[in-house]
Amino acid sequence: MSVRVQREAFDYGRECAGFERAAAASGAGAVVTFCGIVRDLPGGGLRHMEIEHYPGMTERALGAIEAEARQRWALDAALIVHRYGSLAPGETIMMVATAAPHRADAFDAAAFLMDYLKSRAPFWKKETGPEGAAWVAARTEDEAALERWSDAAARRGDGPGGA
């Protein structure tokens, strides 16, 4: 299990290949990978995206989210990589990878990791385009996406930390 928060670019394909090899060696039967990419503005012209984070809390929050995923699903491995700093359109922002004996656990755990890190890990995005710079607002859909995991949390008596 691994969490990395870094300024440097990473090679998504290479990360996936390495993750898959390690997962296969540990006997996993399914691997799911996802990456997020810096999207251009609706009208185009994005110059760069600045990602700010809260050093210390970021690693703790991602570690807690990953630990929660391991409790809920039978995972052989999980990986979260998230960048901060200045990124250009088309660059890879972040990735998650999960490995499990069967595909359902790998898919669900990857979706869970994404849903939680979107609105529970302390990252903030600022886009600079033709009109100047603006902070990206949180989407209500992202908050709502967490609700689909709350039934399972209620059955077990708790959920990942967060107000």
Binding site: L117, S119, A121, P122, F123, V136, A137, E143
Partner: peptide
């Protein structure tokens, strides 16, 4: 934490907008 959370024993308080990771 919530806005009504007690500060007793706390060392670091951080304020920020809703998070936009991923």
């Amino acid at each position: 934490a919530g806005m009504d959370a007690p500060l007793a024993g706390v060392r670091e308080v951080a304020f920020f907008p809703p998070m936009t990771g991923g």
